[in-house]
């Protein structure tokens, strides 16, 4: 095992274990906080794939934005914190069917592309920031602009809703 492999398995372990806690924890607040470690693990995996910009953006957007927003939501809703989440087994047969189909597809895909080892680290590291910036400003300008206009509309809509409620 090389250093790269050890790092990969450590971060994969963190990601998977914390994702399990997110799903199976009985308390919403624990789920929300263990999402922090999931996001961290995913960002680290991006770094191992030499996608530095995506990794940092992942941390900035998901930890700094979305997770904080979710925590605020959970903490300000005083009832949610104390509610015992209902985790029971419902609709066993359809669920089992769906899960086996998805798992079978993923497993088949995994098996057919399996090369017997973790992918070796790609050769010399190059920063992706510059290339990404150039691509966004040339080949992908239209999708980029559409996404930004969409986000602007969403922002203005949210501000409108918030304001209307306070006036009445």
């Amino acid at each position: 095992m090389e250093l790269f492999d050890i790092a990969f398995f450590v971060f994969a372990f963190i990601t998977v274990v914390s994702a399990f806690i997110v799903v199976f924890s009985k308390s919403v607040i624990y789920s929300a906080f263990s999402l922090l470690f999931t996001f961290f693990g995913v960002a680290a995996l991006y770094v191992l794939l030499h996608a530095d910009f995506i990794a940092v953006t992942q941390v900035l957007i998901y930890v700094g934005g979305i997770l904080v927003l979710m925590l605020f939501g959970v903490m300000l809703t005083n009832k949610i914190v104390n509610v015992e989440l209902k985790t029971g087994t419902l609709h066993t047969i359809p669920a089992l069917l769906l899960v086996s189909v998805v798992a079978g597809t993923l497993g088949g895909l995994f098996y057919s592309t399996w090369k017997g080892d973790v992918a070796p680290p790609p050769p010399p590291f190059e920063s992706t920031t510059k290339t990404l910036g150039e691509m966004l400003m040339t080949s992908y300008l239209l999708p980029f602009e559409i996404a930004s206009v969409l986000l602007l509309v969403a922002l203005m809509g949210a501000a409108m809703f918030a304001r209307r409620r306070t006036k009445t």
Binding site: F40, V56, T57, V59, L60, V63, G64, L67, V68, L71
Partner: peptide, 12 residues
């Protein structure tokens, strides 16, 4: 950019 991003761990 990295410094701006990791400081969000402090918030959490």
């Amino acid at each position: 950019f990295y410094i701006l991003a990791v400081s969000s761990f402090v918030v959490v």
